[in-house]
């Protein structure tokens, strides 16, 4: 049996968080949730999770990125793997004139970037890979 990994989901869409929880709880994972960047940061301070699943657009358009950068800039949180979801396709985030381009520059602050809708099979597979450190 796998070690009970601690996964933190940060997304303002409660329904989506609920269904992700259902999918992830089919595996031996402990799921914690937060609905905005600030609450998410508190959860991380309480206990460092093994993985963060993070949404880009919450109250502000770049809330997810803001949190990711904040974590990457701190020694103790730097190595937490982050899986980021957004409704923008990756292609657009890379090439479009949207505001992320200015914020991101060259460096992606996340380990994996995926677009919604979320396929549960792909989600489980990706989470497993990230937890194994791939």
């Amino acid at each position: 049996m796998d070690k009970a990994y601690d996964i933190l989901i940060i997304d303002d869409d409660r329904d989506l968080v609920h269904s992700m929880r259902i999918v992830l709880e089919t595996k031996p994972y402990t799921i914690r949730t937060a609905h905005n960047g600030k609450e998410g940061y508190h959860r991380i301070e309480e206990k460092i999770p093994d993985l963060i699943i993070l949404d880009v657009m919450m109250a502000t358009d770049t809330e997810g990125f803001d949190l990711a950068y904040r974590l990457r800039n701190q020694e103790r949180y730097r190595d937490i793997p982050i899986l980021m979801f957004t409704s923008f396709t990756q292609k657009m985030a890379e090439t479009g004139a949207d505001k992320f381009q200015h914020i991101m520059g060259e460096e992606w602050p996340v380990n994996k970037f995926m677009e919604k809708p979320i396929d549960p099979d792909v989600l489980l597979k990706t989470v497993e890979e990230l937890l194994r450190g791939e």
Binding site: D13, S19, K116, P117, P120
Partner: peptide
């Protein structure tokens, strides 16, 4: 997207 994800 949420509906789609939940349906899946």
């Amino acid at each position: 997207n949420a509906v789609d994800s939940i349906l899946k």
